[in-house]
Design a protein around this nucleic acid. Sequence first.
DNA 1: CATAACCTTCCTACTAGTAGGTAGACAAAA
DNA 2: TTTTGTCTACCTACTAGTAGGAAGGTTATG
Lengths: 193, 193
Amino acid sequence: MKSMSSTSDKILDIAQSLIVAGGYNGFSYADISAAIGIRKASIHHHFPAKAELVAVLVDRYTKQAEAGLQSLRERAASPADQLQFYIDYWRSCIENASQPFCVCAMLASEMQMLPDEVASRVRAHFQNLAAWLTSVLQAGVEQGLLRLDRRPEEQAQMLMASVHGAMLSTRALGDPGLFIAIVGPEIARLRGA
Amino acid sequence: MKSMSSTSDKILDIAQSLIVAGGYNGFSYADISAAIGIRKASIHHHFPAKAELVAVLVDRYTKQAEAGLQSLRERAASPADQLQFYIDYWRSCIENASQPFCVCAMLASEMQMLPDEVASRVRAHFQNLAAWLTSVLQAGVEQGLLRLDRRPEEQAQMLMASVHGAMLSTRALGDPGLFIAIVGPEIARLRGA
DNA sequence: CATAACCTTCCTACTAGTAGGTAGACAAAA
DNA sequence: TTTTGTCTACCTACTAGTAGGAAGGTTATG
C-alpha cells in the first residue's frame, strides 16, 4: 500500500494553493515546478495544458466539497447545525490559513477570461452549493427549526453571497476574525433571532 | 475648451475595465496599447511601472467613490434612501454591463500577490466604504428609520460583504438579476421588515 | 522678430526574463 | 517489451521595462 500522494495529486495540491493565493493568471507551471522539485515538462506530462489542469482541479474540488456537504448532512443532527458546521469549516480554514479562500470563488472573479472548460465547472460548483444550502434551509423550515423571511432558494443565495463576501473582506482587511463576525450573525438570525 | 480626455485618463479607463474583467495579472501594457492605439512605450512614459499605474488607478477610483458617496449623503433625503441609491448604482452598473464588478473587490481577491503600494490602497478603500456604510446606518438608527440588530459597524461589514458576494454570484452564474435579488432583501430588512 | 533651449508626447527598436508548450532521450517498472 | 515518469533542451509568444530619437509646442534670450 502506498499511502504517499501521487505526483499528479501533489501538482494539484500546489496548484490549488497557488490559485487560492492569486487566481488563474496568478500562477505558472514554473511555480509548481519550483514548489515540488520537478521539471516543468514533467508537469506537462501529467497535465498537457493549463486549462486542463485547472479543470481537473475544479472537478476534484467540487467532488470533495460535495462529499463533505453530503457527510455533513448525514452527521449533523439538525439543519441549523449543518449550517453551523459549514461556516465553522471555513472559519478554521481561514484562521489556520490552510485555505483562506474558496477556489471557485477565486476563479469566479476571473470568470470573464477563464477557459470555457473551467468556467462551466466553476458555475456548476456555485449551483451545487446553492442547491445544498437551499435544501438545508428548506429542511430547517419544515422542521420548524429555521425562520426565513424569503423563499429558501433566495435565502440560500443571500447566505452564499454573505460567505464569499466575508472571505473577501477578511482578505482585504487582513483580519481573520472578520469572517465569523460577518457570517455568524447571519446564521444566528436564521436560527430565529 | 478641451472636453476630450487626456491620454493618461484613457489609459486608466482601459486599464480599469481590464482589471474589472481579469484582475491585476489579467492585463498587460500590450492590451492597453491595442485598445487605445498607442505604443507600449508611450504608456510607460505616462506610467513607468505597472504597479504605479494601478496605484494611481485605485487612487482615482477611491476618490471618485468617496465623492459619489459624499454627494449621495447630501442629495438623498434619508439614510434609507442613501443605501437604496448606493445599491441602485451598482445594479445599473451590472445590468448595463458598464462596470460589472468593483475594481477594489476584484483586486482584493488577489491581495496576497499585489504590490504593497496597491494592496494598501485597496485596503483603504474597504475601510472607507465600511466607514461610510457605518455612518449611514448610524444616522438611520438615530433618526429611527432603520432597525439594526447589531452594532452599526458590524452591520456595515455584513452589508458590504453581501454586496461583494452578490457581485461574485452574479458573475459566476451569469445572471445580472441575481445582484438585486440578493442585496434588495438585505436592505429591505434594515428598513424594518 | 528670431532663435535657441526646453518639455512633452509619442515613436521604433531593443533587452532580459517568463509564459505555456514540445521533442526526444533515458531509466525503471509492468 | 511496452508503458510510465522524468529529464534536458528547446521553441514561440508574450511580459515589463529601457534607450534613444523625432515632432511639436512653450518659453527664455538675443
